[in-house]
Design a protein around this nucleic acid. Structure first.
Lengths: 337, 337
DNA sequence: AGCGCTCCCGTGAGCGTTCACGGGAGCGCT
DNA sequence: AGCGCTCCCGTGAACGCTCACGGGAGCGCT
């Protein structure tokens, strides 16, 4: 059979509800009734429609359906790296919280690259009803892409008027960590900070304050990649620069775990020769030996909080105040310190 | 100001493109032009429209837009537990593969509960264009909910005619693992299997075959919860039932890591007193001490394969044959064996 | 016979957006 | 003056579906 010119059958034309109706010899509405399990339809007719639908491979358009009954809510979750256990935990928490509300969550992994972040932002505004995320780009850029869409930032310092932001408050926790180390007799405490671009992290600020408050020199700090290997090499660097250090606080648990591993390789037993305290309180910390002490934060609460704020921003005002959008981190001791 | 009866302002009526048009004193189309950066619009007009849009808090409906230009593809990813590192890796791989195609991925975490799985299936068919997932429910149920939608299953045994399934082939890898243990002088090798409902896992079958082939008694097997703690207690159980065991193969890396930790607590050094080989080859295995040996599979390839099959099923036939939908697992040795 | 009821089914409208087209205003040129 | 061109802008239609409504057929009842 030769294709007739003018009858462009290039694309196999998506089959619509009308095609099914025609095939079954009924009207659109009857097809709709059959597929949505509604009343006012005869059993036989229903079956006939269902058969026709299956035969044609019909699948209703979610766009058309969404257009008429606007009851589905989809939020975008943007994270730098799903393989980073911290973000995995946050994502899992957000998914769980979203599920209880019947919301859908589209996850975007930006691979920690600015361009991907931009690309995601570009495309996201036309795909979701709200955004939760961890962004590194400037607010102005965020603003440009999200145009009036509810946005909840995670762990971003610096108050914003335009966006909600969930703050991670580890000040007391870090203070407690340092206090604990001091109580254990450590007088030289180092830190493995995050390798950020130039500016030191807020966690470093907390460490400095806590150390100073305890009369400890807060100068033994080196930057580390946010990986276990990064933590390992940073520890080597720290110990060679400051041989007297007997305890380290780290930017996060991943780095801490790397340090733990490296310490063992260096023949230093933990916590006797070297005490280690991380930050985040990942479940992962319980798997290593010795189990990691950490300034732990409740990632489930973090995720739930983000979702709740989105809900309030979206349809259930008033939004939570900035003072409520806080997750406190507190010291959780295990074997490593 | 008292709200007029009959003028139901309960819901703040979503603002549409027409509202913006009216407010800016132009037509729909001009608004559309302004927002989509099209030509054929005056600079001043554009600015005026943009201002009006912002003032009204206008955000285009993704449904209406999707309806007219059908260019967005969204796939659903259904996994039992995002906190299980294996699924995290698969999810990350799928996200990455989807990103290169510009696809969106909605992630659903069923929390390993059958009811949630059903609920997800229920809702998913009207939200995504295809499904990738790890399901435990019977195929008939899957079939009922997915009605002609492309579905790609992961690591599900038992061929299916209706669904594509990516098979995980660890037969040779497990054989190699047992061979390695035998070569190291082990003659009593146990296995910590997954705690499934009654039927033993396929990995257990592979183990049995491999052990038998090497003249090893494959009877030292106990079930374990799919957690580190589960692995730990299973190891205790195994060792008390079969004191002579000097090496264990486990259902997956999580269990192996638990066993590793338990071994240390029992005073058995690894790999000297007890060799451990896991399954999955998680990145996590490199973080523990000693680093975990494992029958490793390429999760990135797994995710990419799933996405590719979806693409072929959806619009780029022919679909991959069942013989191509395989991820081979191979032995990767580290410190633990 | 006439009424009313239930059971089915179909028709028009509308959801909010983009596409294809048509057309007026203003300008420069012959 | 008339023509043609560019630059803007607006109008109808279409996307695929559901909702609200109307209406015919069949039945039992008075």
């Amino acid at each position: 059979m030769v294709s007739t010119p003018g009858a462009e059958r290039a694309e196999p034309r998506k089959v619509t509800i009308n095609d099914v109706a025609r095939s079954a010899g009924v009207s659109r509405q009857t097809v709709s009734r059959a597929l949505n399990d509604k009343d006012e339809i005869d059993g036989d007719t229903k079956q006939r429609v269902l058969d026709a639908a299956r035969a044609l491979g019909y699948r209703p358009s979610r766009f058309a359906r969404g257009l008429v009954r606007q009851d589905t809510m989809t939020i975008g979750l943007v994270i730098p790296d799903l393989l980073n256990p911290f973000f995995t935990e946050v994502a899992a928490a957000a998914l769980e919280a979203a599920r209880t509300r019947g919301w859908h969550v589209v996850v975007y992994d930006t691979a920690d690259r600015a361009e991907e972040e931009r690309g995601t932002l570009q495309v996201i505004s036309s795909q979701v009803d709200a955004v939760i995320g961890y962004f590194s780009c400037p607010e102005s850029e965020l603003e440009a892409f999200t145009r009036g869409m509810p946005v909840v930032l995670i762990g971003r310092e610096g108050r914003s008027t335009r966006f909600s932001s969930i703050r991670i408050d580890g000040q007391e926790g870090v203070h407690a960590a340092v206090a604990h180390l001091v109580a254990k007799g450590h007088s030289r405490i180092g830190m493995l900070d995050h390798h950020t671009r130039a500016e030191p992290s807020i966690r470093h600020t907390w460490f400095t304050a806590a150390a100073t408050a305890h009369g400890i020199d807060p100068g033994a700090v080196v930057g580390a990649d946010q990986t276990a290997d990064g933590g390992g090499s940073a520890l080597r660097e720290l110990l060679s620069a400051h041989p007297g250090v007997t305890a380290v606080f780290t930017f996060n648990d991943i780095i801490a775990i790397g340090a733990l591993r490296e310490a063992r390789r260096l023949g230093r037993s933990v916590p006797e020769d070297l005490a280690v305290i991380g930050f985040d309180g990942l479940q992962l910390g319980a798997l290593v030996e010795p189990p990691l002490s950490s300034v732990a934060l409740d990632t489930r609460r973090l995720g739930a909080l983000a979702i709740e704020q989105v809900a309030r921003l979206l349809s259930e005002p008033p939004p939570l105040a900035i003072t409520d959008l806080v997750v406190h981190a507190e010291l959780r001791l295990s074997g490593s310190a």
